Simulated assay, not measured.
Amino acid sequence: MRRARMTKAAALLLAGSLALAACASDEEPTAGGNGGGDGGSDDLQVGLAYDVGGRGDQSFNDSAYAGVEAAIAALGGEVQEFSPNDDGSDRVEGLANLAEAGYDPVIGVGFAYADTIAEVAEEFPDTTFAVVDASVADSGLENATGLLFAEEQGSFLAGVAAALKSETGHVGFVGGVEMPLIQKFEAGFTAGAKAVDPDIQVDVEYISPAGDFTGFGDPARGQILARSMYDAGADIVFHAAGGSGSGVFQAAADTGNRAIGVDSDQYQTVDDPALQAVIMTSMLKRVDNAVEAFITDYSEGNVQGGIDILNDLESDGVGLATSGGQIDDIQQQIEDYRQRIISGEITVPTTP
């Protein structure tokens, strides 16, 4: 039974229903209940709430959608999508509407849903939730799961690749927002590059400061920052900037240099062949695998709430893409570093 008291989520629901992306049928979904469904995939109704920018970013959000798509292809069912407005002020309303409509499980994509999930999951205890990039281990919520990633480990390998392939001994990193999550990418990348070449120069720039999430959707600014690095002598730039990464790729193409993508295999996701050609590799953050596994566990009744699931190098939750063949010649060195991280010989820093 839902609580009778009037919470923020309930008040927003009474204020009016948010228009959700029309990717589900008109048939009223059946909630699976806390802890997962009964194994009947016909009733699988997934609610997917995107990070800022929504589907089409060729990166983080698209990877989450790919995971849902794969799960539905295997299990049957449907998905209903929600994209927040630019300042994210409607996240609570969006999640609450998905839960109220009976979508179950409901997945929030991105750390910005941490507080939102805590509020809405408490209001809808019979709905199963997951949040990407946010911990629920200390939340006390029994109907939520945190899907976490060792971004620093995958980024370390990206740094290794950059240092091994750089011809100038000078590389760069462009982050979307200067915040702890993105700084994990920076820390790992810098550590990996310096493990190969202690004297390598690593330039670091962020598109926007902490609290300003426009940095994930500003390709023009990403292009400017990356171009300044290339003009200063860097020949490879790694971005962890969401939709802004296309600007980094454009700067690489304009200057005849190379770039490293993030989250998805961006060699496969960019539309422009000229940009595809500059993508040396991508640091894979397998949000797709994590989301698909969570939905599969839900369909089988195997979700354990109140815990975090870490996706790291050992579980292939992070890694490097090989599309395009530009790092084929250094695969053995990359694998050596990967095994040293898995064994614990190398501990990758999580802060710059």
Rank of each mutant, 00 (worst) to 15 (best):
H170R: 13
F238V: 01
V52A: 11
I182N: 01
L320M: 05
G102Q: 04
I224C: 01
G67P: 11
D57I: 12
R338M: 01
I341D: 01
S343Q: 15
E122V: 07
A290I: 03
I330W: 07
D42W: 11
G16F: 13
I207E: 02
G88V: 06
A252N: 07
V160K: 15
A232L: 04
F216A: 06
V136C: 02
Y206A: 05
I182Y: 01
D328W: 04
S139V: 10
A70V: 11
D42I: 10
G222W: 11
G159P: 13
V287A: 06
G192A: 15
L157R: 15
A96V: 01
D308Y: 13
Q183K: 14
E205R: 14
L147P: 09
G47S: 09
D218F: 04
D272A: 10
G233K: 13
Q153I: 13
S83T: 15
A193D: 12
A73V: 09
G53R: 06
T30I: 12
V237H: 08
L164D: 07
A220D: 03
G243C: 03
S343V: 15
D115R: 10
E119N: 08
D329T: 13
S246C: 08
A259G: 06
S244I: 09
D57W: 11
E167H: 11
P352V: 08
G47P: 08
S244V: 09
L313M: 14
V171S: 01
L225E: 00
A251W: 06
F213H: 02
K184C: 00
R2Q: 07
I309V: 15
V318D: 07
L157D: 07
S244E: 05
S25F: 11
I341T: 03
G47A: 08
L141R: 13
T30C: 05
R286S: 08
H239Y: 05
P219C: 05
A290E: 01
E93G: 14
D104P: 08
Q45Y: 10
G39P: 04
G261F: 02
G110Q: 11
H170K: 14
A252M: 08
T168C: 05
A15V: 06
T214Y: 00
D235L: 11
A22L: 14
M283S: 14
D316Q: 15
L320W: 02
A10T: 14
G56H: 08
G88N: 07
S244D: 06
L181A: 13
R340H: 04
F111G: 00
Q58R: 14
V68H: 03
A137N: 09
G222D: 11
L147Y: 10
T128E: 00
D235A: 11
R221Y: 02
F249D: 06
D115K: 12
S25K: 13
F173C: 09
A70M: 10
A162C: 12
L13P: 05
D336F: 14
G172D: 02
E119A: 10
V136H: 00
I236F: 12
G54W: 05
Y206P: 03
T296M: 03
G94N: 00
I182R: 00
I117P: 07
R227T: 15
A118E: 01
I295V: 03
S323T: 07
S166H: 05
Y298D: 03
S17Q: 15
G215Q: 01
G39W: 04
D263V: 14
G211A: 03
E100S: 09
F60V: 02
E119D: 09
V202M: 02
F149R: 03
A220R: 03
Y206D: 01
P180Y: 06
K285T: 12
